[in-house]
Structure formats: structure tokens, C-alpha cells
Design a protein around this nucleic acid. Structure first.
Length: 691
DNA sequence: ATTAGGG
DNA sequence: CCCTAAT
């Protein structure tokens, strides 16, 4: 069993007794929800859904072939991996407490770790590859709170496999955690999939988590100076010769009690760099599902894009009085939200109008003559503004013909193509719409600021609102932001600036990218750092300047922008979130995970497992306010997916293969871990292993 | 507030 | 990323 200590509250709830926290087992209800949901909505199912369903079934049926085709995919491999877990249960409460303390001080972890990391590096340079034992010692001296961190330096690991193997083997023997093959396993692992780079090795050795509480029964570390309470986890991947083939992911937790014999896990020396070349037999169902889902998505996607004229009325009778036009899928959601809000006020708004008009009223200052020819009309949807009020009920109906849009200044080189100009304008507008933009309401030319006011109170009645009411799009943020401009888009954008605090889009050629800050900050991150130190742009940039000082100080994170050269620069400075939040729905700006973030995530998940996103967040992204546990969960999901597809199909900043390998390994491991606890009728094999 | 999944 | 159901 995996005993893990969790939060203080949890500890307390246990009355201090160390109630191990087992990996959360998904509630039975979960995972079935969707099914139920569908059933309940069956009647509402539209033709499209039906088609999608049929398609999905077909896919499922044909799945066999698909599965075979993808047999070599990492996913399969990962799923097929055997997981051997060795854990020794520790019942010493003192240790738990200690761990607890550690957790509590997690905020200091990063600082410590950073410190350690630097020390290690220094050590490494002075005496690389030698005396691995010393490192741990030094570490323990420096920090006795983070036992898990004590081990080899990254550099050491990367440069001295032999040493590591030796160390491990001896350790294994002593602790009994590993069989005599430990060394071989380690080597295989290293060579094989898991990468040969230092970082990976480091990670592999890296103890899973501070959470792992129980102390090792045997003094595991060669140095013997290892903290008694530190948990350690060793993961090894090997390629079994048996049919089961698969990487072996063995976790050795000192506190863990389960001791899975690695009967099924053999190691093979045939390690290829690419590692997972699985022949997997297990988990086909998972793969199936995976694939099926993937394909099924096609239909729905099409629906959204294709049906521009689709209005709510079509689906929701209750909205028959309202008209909504969608031009972009992207804005649909926010539109919808806004609509909902407006609906409450019985207001009818045409988003389309707003958009087209926004463009029209936009001032384009450009040297480019073509700029003047920007046409923003969406066609039939554009209608002159006219307020209409009518209603037998107390509902006010309005049609918005145009929004007043803040001046939009666009600068574009004469050499730019019309296409680029269009794109530029589009981006600028989208940035406004998607980013911090809010709607203002004017009545008789006066801005109505009190949102809580009812239309009636504001004097907006059926009769007088015709020409007295107006809407305006206003910048939501006070700081410039690249908002929606994704890094990829930047190259297409020429210099775009808004006179208003709207979106300011930097020139593509500029060395500074939008993700500059993020990138730099991320660079400051050391792979060794347990907690992603990325700054929270939102807080940093928020108008109120409400960054969390406490946190910053606590983590002693350096908010020192480094060089923006990081290729992973992808983060985008968000628009004013505070204001945005006020707005009910602006979709959050996209902020691609940087490699550093991914690594932090992987590290955390390796230790905590999937299903504990809250903890993962706290552990690795406590400082990144813009990353919610849901985000992390989603990212993990995409990572798993990414890892399962061919590199050619991946997009965005490429994630190091080693990281992806680790993702799969961890995913596989934790999946099995979860499965182990779930089954009512635990597999015999598992049961045996657990004893 | 979290978790798990679908969209 | 968003949205939601179920916890």
C-alpha cells in the first residue's frame, strides 16, 4: 500500500495517527457519468450527435485494426508495462510527523532545493563522478527536511551511470528492495527509455515525494546519513523478455509495504533510446477508448465550424427571442456566457454586429493604403443599429448595431501584404474581444457603471431605449498585453499598437517575445527545483499589483527576468484578470506550458501520482496562480496524449522526449496503482505481490 | 473545493 | 481551456 501523508488537515483528521493516504480511488460513479449524461440527454441528442455516435461505434468496431496499428505506440507500451512496486510500510508516527513538517515547509523547499542544486553543481564540477556518497551527505547537512532530495546530483547521475548503478545495487541488496538485478535494471533503464540525460536520471532517482513518508526499513542510502523519514522511490524501466514486455516501473518506497515481486519484470539490456517499443498486450481497452474518443471528436468539431448561422433558437427554444450569431467558435463560449447574462436582462444582442462594427469603427492608422479598405462587414448580419423595444412582457429587446470601440492603432510596414494587414487587424480585434474587453452600456450617452442596477432602474425602458442606449467595447486592462497573441501568431503580426490600453502587439521581429517574462522566469528555474517557480503574471501584472509577496518571499523565488531567449517562451501575458473575472466569462488567455513547467509537472506527478492535482498544484505550481489544478490535470492529459502520438504530430514547443517518456511511465505506473486498489476482485497476481 | 471526464 | 457532474 502506498502510504502517503497529505495535508495537515488530513493528518489532523486522522488524529495524528498516520493513516496512510492511499491513492485516491476513483469513485465508481466517476467515469460513468458521461454515460449517464448521455442517456439522460438522449432525447436531446441531435442528428449530429447521432452521427458522431455511429461513427464512434464504427470506430470502436474497427478498433481492433486500429489497435494493432498502434501497437507500437507508446501508449500501448506504457499500458503494458508491468509495474512492480515495493513498499515497506512504516508505522512510525514520528516519521509521519516529520513528513508533515516537511510538507508544511514545502514553501521553503524550492529555496532549499535551489540552493542545493547550485551546491551540487558546484560539487559536480569540482569532483564529478566521484564519491557519490558524499553528495547526499552534504545535502542532508544542508537540509534535513528534504530527504528526498538527497541523493546524487544531477550532474553526477548524468555522468556516472556506473556509479549510480553500483550504488543502487548495493543499496538494493541491503534494503532488500531490489533483487540482485537492481544494477542491471538500473542500467537498462538508463539506457533504455528513460533517457540518458542527466535530468532524467536525476528524476529517476529522485525520491518520489516528500509525501512518501515512511522511513525505509533499511537504511537505504549508502551514506546512511539519509534521513530516516525520507521516502525514496526508484523507478526502473526495463524490457522484459517475456511476452509481457514492457517497461518496468518499479517504485521503491521505503514506507511502502507492498512488495511486488518483480516476477513479471525482467530486464533486458536491449535498451534503445526510444525505449518504449512495447508489445503490449494489456490495456487495450484503454487504448481503444482513447482512440475512439479521438476520432469521435471529429464530428462535433465540424459542427461548430460549419454551422455559422446556427443560433440558439435552433437548440434552445427558450431563447427564441434572442438572436445570437456566431462567427467564431472561439467566441462562442464567451458569447454564450454573455448572452446568458444579457438574457437575464432580457436583452438581445448580436455579437456579430458588435464585431463587425467594432472593426468598422476602428481607426486604422497605417501607412499602408490598404488599411483604409479594411472591411469589417460580416455581410447580412450587419445591420444598422437600431434599438427596438417592444414587448408585452417587461422584456427589453435590443439590437445592437454597433459598439463603440476604442481606437485601434495599427502600424504596419508598407511592404506588408494585405493579407498580413488583415491578419493584424483581426488579431488585434480578437485580442480585444478575447482578452480583457468588456462591454459598456451607455444610456443617453451616459455610461452606466452600476452593474447591479436593473434596466428599469437605469431608466432603460421599453419606450425610451431606442436611440438612447448604446454599447461600447472597452479595454479591460490597463496594461498592455499581448493577450491573445500567441507566439506563433506573432510572426504574422506586424507592429500593432493600440492607443488605448488595449492590446499591444509587439513587432514580430522584436527580439522580445510576448512570452518574454515567462520565458525568462522559467529560465530561472532549475530542473532540480521541485516547485515550478514561474511567476504568476497575473498577479505580477495585475493593476493592483497584487502579487503575493508572502509567497514570493517564502519561496525566495527570483523574479529576475533573464534572457528571453528561451525557446519555450510561449507564455503570454494575460490580460487584466481582475477585470476579466468581473466579466463573466472571458476565456482565459492561452498560456502554453513551458518545458520547465512540464518538467515540474512530471516531477510532481511522478511523486504524487495522478488524481491528486490539488497536491500537484501545491507542490509544483504553488506560485503559478494561473495554473489551476484543473489546468495541471488537463496538461497531464495532453501530455499523455502527446507522448502517445508521433513527434510529427505534436505541436507547440516540443517537449523533450525524455519527459514524455516519463509521462508515459508515470501514467502507466499510477494507472496500475489505481487499478490495483479498485478491483473488487483484486487480481490474484496483484494480491500475491502485495503481500 | 476537488476530481474526473467530456467538449 | 472550458464546463460540469459528482464528490
Amino acid at each position: 500500500m502506498v502510504f502517503q501523508k497529505r495535508t495537515s488537515s488530513e493528518m489532523e483528521s486522522c488524529g495524528g495517527s498516520h493513516v496512510a493516504e492511499m491513492p485516491r480511488v476513483p469513485k465508481s460513479a466517476r467515469g460513468k457519468r458521461s454515460v449517464r449524461k448521455k442517456e439522460s440527454q438522449g432525447q436531446a441528442m441531435c442528428a449530429f450527435d447521432l452521427l458522431a455516435t455511429v461513427a464512434g461505434k464504427l470506430l470502436d468496431e474497427g478498433e481492433g485494426s486500429l489497435g494493432n496499428m498502434s501497437a507500437g505506440s507508446p501508449v500501448l507500451a506504457a499500458s503494458a508495462k508491468d509495474v512492480c512496486v515495493k513498499q515497506e510500510q512504516c508505522d512510525e508516527e514520528g516519521k509521519h510527523l516529520k513528513n508533515y513538517v516537511m510538507d508544511q515547509d514545502s514553501c521553503n523547499e524550492s529555496a532549499l532545493i535551489s540552493h542545493i542544486a547550485s551546491q551540487r553543481l558546484a560539487d559536480h564540477h569540482s569532483r564529478k563522478g566521484e564519491d557519490l556518497n558524499e553528495v547526499p551527505k552534504a545535502k542532508s547537512e544542508a537540509v534535513d527536511k528534504e530527504p528526498s532530495m538527497i541523493s546524487c546530483t544531477k550532474a553526477d547521475l548524468g555522468s556516472n551511470f556506473g556509479a549510480i548503478a553500483d550504488r543502487w545495487s548495493s543499496e538494493s541488496v541491503e534494503s532488500g528492495a531490489f533483487t540482485g538485478d537492481a544494477a542491471a535494471n538500473v542500467m537498462a533503464l538508463a539506457a533504455a527509455a528513460f533517457n540518458k540525460n542527466a535530468p532524467d536520471m536525476y528524476n529517476l532517482l529522485d525520491p518520489m515525494d516528500v509525501d512518501v513518508k515512511p522511513p525505509p526499513l533499511v537504511s537505504s542510502d549508502s551514506t546512511g546519513e539519509m534521513p530516516l523519514y525520507g521516502g525514496k522511490i526508484h523507478k526502473s524501466v526495463s524490457f522484459p523478455r517475456g511476452p509481457k514486455g514492457g517497461a518496468e516501473y518499479s517504485v521503491d518506497r521505503e514506507n511502502d509495504d507492498d512488495d511486488d515481486k518483480s516476477s513479471g519484470c525482467t530486464h533486458s539490456s536491449t535498451a534503445t533510446n526510444r525505449g518504449f517499443r512495447p508489445n503490449c498486450t494489456a490495456d487495450q481497452s484503454r487504448v481503444k477508448k482513447f482512440l475512439a474518443c479521438k476520432y469521435r471528436k471529429v464530428a462535433p468539431a465540424r459542427m461548430h465550424k460549419g454551422d455559422l448561422s446556427y443560433s440558439d433558437a435552433d437548440r434552445k427554444p427558450s431563447f427564441r427571442n434572442k438572436k445570437m450569431y456566431y462567427t467564431r467558435q472561439r467566441t462562442q463560449r464567451s458569447t454564450f456566457k454573455r448572452r446568458k447574462m444579457l438574457d437575464r436582462h432580457s436583452t438581445l444582442v448580436s455579437e456579430e454586429f458588435a464585431k463587425s462594427n467594432a472593426k468598422r469603427t476602428t481607426k486604422v492608422n497605417a501607412r499602408e493604403p490598404h488599411a483604409a479598405s479594411l472591411e469589417a462587414n460580416k455581410g447580412s448580419n450587419s445591420m444598422p443599429f437600431h434599438g427596438s423595444c417592444k414587448s408585452n412582457d417587461c422584456h427589453v429587446k435590443l439590437k445592437i448595431k454597433s459598439f463603440k470601440v476604442p481606437e485601434l492603432l495599427i502600424e504596419i510596414p508598407e511592404t506588408a501584404s494585405v493579407g498580413s494587414l488583415k491578419k493584424t487587424v483581426l488579431e488585434a480585434v480578437n485580442a480585444m474581444l478575447g482578452g480583457g474587453l468588456r462591454v459598456g452600456v451607455l444610456h443617453h450617452g451616459k455610461k452606466i457603471r452600476d452593474d447591479s442596477k436593473t434596466l428599469m432602474q437605469a431608466g432603460i425602458g421599453h419606450d425610451d431605449m431606442l436611440d438612447n442606449i448604446g454599447f461600447s467595447l472597452e479595454p479591460n486592462c490597463t496594461r498592455h498585453s499581448s493577450q491573445l497573441a500567441a507566439p506563433e501568431d506573432i510572426e504574422f503580426l506586424e507592429t500593432v499598437e493600440t492607443t488605448e490600453p488595449l492590446a499591444r502587439i509587439a513587432p514580430a521581429d522584436s527580439s522580445s517575445k510576448h512570452g518574454e517574462l515567462d520565458a525568462s522566469q522559467e529560465l530561472a528555474l532549475t530542473p532540480l527545483t521541485a516547485n515550478y517557480q514561474g511567476n504568476d503574471h497575473d498577479s505580477v501584472h495585475s493593476p493592483g499589483g497584487i502579487s503575493s509577496p508572502e509567497k514570493a518571499s517564502a519561496n525566495s523565488r527570483a523574479i529576475v527576468p533573464v534572457t528571453p531567449v528561451d525557446s519555450s517562451a510561449g507564455a503570454i501575458v494575460p490580460a487584466n484578470k481582475a477585470k476579466r473575472s468581473a466579466e463573466q466569462g472571458q476565456r482565459r488567455i492561452r498560456r502554453p506550458f513551458s518545458v520547465a513547467e512540464v518538467e515540474a509537472l512530471v516531477l510532481a506527478v511522478e511523486k504524487l501520482g495522478t488524481g491528486r492535482w490539488r497536491d500537484v498544484k501545491l507542490r509544483a505550481f504553488d506560485n503559478a496562480k494561473h495554473r489551476t489544478y484543473v489546468d495541471l490535470k488537463d496538461k497531464w492529459k495532453t501530455l499523455v496524449h502527446t507522448a502517445s502520438i508521433s513527434p510529427q504530430q505534436r505541436r507547440g514547443e516540443p517537449v523533450p522526449q525524455d519527459l514524455l517518456d516519463r509521462v508515459l511511465a508515470a501514467q502507466s505506473y499510477w494507472s496500475q496503482q489505481q487499478a490495483k486498489l479498485q478491483p473488487k476482485t483484486p487480481p490474484l497476481a496483484e494480491a500475491r505481490l502485495l503481500t
